[in-house]
């Protein structure tokens, strides 16, 4: 075998090894994380843990109010960010002319995506909690989390809409439909799977965020469930932080159990969304 070919063969082998290892590392990291959290957290999971309030300075009992707090925050975030995000995505993809104004919009979106979450926490404290006088509450927390989620939802919507062939829009317009009718009868239904999965990714991110709710929604301990959007709440990520740093002499498995509930919940929703999406894909293909 001549030398040039031998060298090329070696380079090829090295390239496969390097890129393959990198890919394997990613899988290993994800697997290790999930397995470790499951192994450490699963023993703590019981009916009591999921349905009871924290007891004995949070060293025992369950995390029911914590789960409900995160659920309330996430649903409120969805209610606030989905309509605005999807509408803005539709505008950018379907209506916006290429102008200075749209460049400003796009720049604002990427800026929003780049802001660190602790800065959102401070911003939410200043604007929603103090200036607007909402106080530390689900509403203030959800508004803050919505700022964090919006760029993800807008981008997901815009991307999903752009995947829909122009032909389909033209067919509808040529039948005497207005642009808006074309969008909500043809384009949006076809793009729904993409919009939903993208949005759920953004919302699961929000569900696990600590910094934005630190000053705007989350409290150390509160056994009552929230009775309105103006109530403050306990939340899973903040509870993990508190257990890890503030509560001495607590059994470790309570922290891991709480982490398992958070990761498990988010993963379950993502998997459900992915399954629904692939079911839709089988129906809708171009």
């Amino acid at each position: 075998m001549n030398r040039r070919i031998r060298q090329a063969r070696i380079a090829q082998t090295v390239a496969v090894a390097v890129t393959g290892t990198a890919a394997a590392l990613v899988v290993a990291a994800a697997l290790f994380l999930l397995v470790y959290i499951t192994v450490r957290g699963l023993p703590a999971i019981s009916w009591e843990f999921l349905t009871d309030v924290p007891r004995q300075q949070m060293k025992a009992g369950g995390i029911f109010p914590v789960i409900m707090g995160t659920l309330a925050l996430t649903l409120a975030t969805a209610a606030l960010s989905l309509p605005v995000g999807v509408a803005a995505g539709i505008y950018l993809s379907e209506y916006a002319p290429r102008s200075r104004f749209t460049r400003v919009i796009r720049l604002s979106i990427s800026n929003m995506a780049g802001v660190p979450s602790i800065v959102y926490g401070l911003f939410g404290l200043a604007l929603f909690v103090i200036l607007m006088g909402i106080g530390k509450s689900i509403l203030a927390g959800a508004l803050t989390l919505a700022c964090l989620t919006l760029p993800v939802i807008i981008t997901a919507t815009e991307e999903a809409l752009r995947q829909i062939p122009t032909d389909l829009r033209q067919a509808s317009l040529a039948l005497g439909a207005t642009r808006w009718r074309t969008i909500y009868k043809v384009v949006l239904p076809a793009a729904a799977p993409g919009i939903v999965t993208g949005s759920i990714l953004g919302l699961s991110r929000a569900a696990g965020e600590t910094a934005p709710i630190l000053f705007t929604a989350a409290v150390y301990y509160k056994r009552q469930l929230p009775d309105s959007v103006f109530a403050d709440v306990m939340a899973l990520p903040y509870h993990i932080f508190i257990l890890a740093t503030q509560v001495t002499g607590r059994p470790d498995d309570i922290i891991w159990g709480t982490a398992f509930v958070l990761v498990g919940g988010v993963t379950a929703i993502s998997v459900a969304a992915a399954a629904w999406r692939s079911a839709q894909r089988r129906k809708v293909r171009w």
Binding site: D167, L168, A174, L175
Partner: peptide, 15 residues
């Protein structure tokens, strides 16, 4: 466009 319909080059039925 309700009086003047169009059929396109590639079949483009709605999903």
């Amino acid at each position: 466009r309700t009086k003047v319909g169009q059929v396109f080059q590639k079949p483009n039925p709605f999903p």
